[in-house]
Design a protein around this nucleic acid. Structure first.
Lengths: 202, 202
DNA sequence: GTCTATAGCTGGATAGAC
DNA sequence: GTCTATCCAGCTATAGAC
């Protein structure tokens, strides 16, 4: 006896809605994207959108829910290794690479707009941010211990600024220009031990 | 005989609407701020908003129109001086200082969202951005000429990245934390001549 | 110039057929 | 599960009185 619902199919439908919506939200914004448009883009009717999602916000949230496991995976992948700064820069490359894509830029901006108005979304994003920050903090600390990175920096604050810098790159998305080389330069110089300036602590 | 319109009064009313709207747009967003709310906050009726402005977008634009002369003034103020890097950092301080203010952060995010949908707004912002960029480019070039700043950097690209970094600071507005010291560090290190690394060109 | 009142439209979410 | 049809709230922008 077949089950009433095929979970695989349900997931596929949800994903279709989610990814069609992501494109629309990125280009038109959340408020100017109608449920009917999402439905059309996903190949079903407007009523069905509300069968798979409680409301429009839930559709928006679903876009970012996939990021959490992906972030965990990325952090784990860069956690080991003998070169902490190298690992940080590799993470920066991964995080900042999509900044070239205007669609990624658009969805980040939309996220910034929506996050104040949706507590559930705040939780999802806070988790993802924390995972990435945690990975960066650990690497900064290791870099400081090995003398490559400036020991004066507070690791948590430094990690937050790395995320800031990367996010800044998203704000001027230019498909023609790979932001990663400059991002690497900025972050590497930001973190590194001052060449000779002796910080005269007693 | 008094003139029918008192230009001074008209300007005052427009400013009242503009600044009341800025607060609302920053916290609630453009789409969720109604003309009636703006009117109430400015102390007049909803119909009057459309007497002073052609439409809601024009109200939003007016917020940024004041930035252009202010930017010219700031650039002029930092154009002279014997210490180009110092001048750049002073500009970064001025540009990034408001990042602490959640309202400034909110309005920047809203700007990013609206700019795609309003050509007139694009023009206003492009002009302001150009003025600031121009000021930074000149200072970078002078710093390079005097050997303080890395000659390998393309001045225009470097200026654009300074603006990116500053904007990034706005994305995590924290009233408790002054972003300026870190911004100065990041920008100074980003621009400065590499300590000894000889770039072996030929 | 400034108000009140409202026309006219849009779009989220639902009801109920299939 | 998926559709169509639609209700209803909310809003911009205008009309016209004062």
């Amino acid at each position: 006896m077949a089950r009433t619902v095929d979970p695989e199919r349900t997931r596929a439908r949800r994903d279709a809605i989610s990814s069609a919506a992501a494109d629309l939200f990125a280009t038109k914004g959340f408020d100017h994207t109608t449920a009917a448009e999402i439905a059309r883009a996903a190949g079903l009717s407007s009523g069905s959108v509300f069968y798979y999602f409680a409301d429009k916000r839930a559709v928006f949230r679903s876009i970012f829910e996939a990021d959490l496991p992906a972030s965990r995976e990325m952090v784990a992948r860069h956690a080991e290794g003998t070169d902490p700064l190298g690992s940080i820069l590799a993470m920066v490359d991964e995080l900042g690479g999509p900044a070239q894509d205007p669609s990624a830029s658009g969805i980040l901006i939309e996220l910034l707009r929506q996050i104040d108005h949706d507590v559930q979304l705040q939780i999802v994003i806070a988790q993802t941010t924390e995972v990435i920050r945690g990975g960066l903090v650990a690497l900064v600390e290791r870099g400081q211990a090995s003398g490559v990175l400036d020991p004066e920096l507070d690791p948590t604050e430094a990690a937050a600024w790395i995320q800031n810098i990367v996010d800044g790159a998203f704000l001027s998305a230019d498909p023609e220009r790979d932001p990663r080389p400059m991002l690497r330069r900025i972050v590497a110089r930001f973190l590194s031990t001052p060449p000779s300036t002796q910080g005269g602590n007693s």
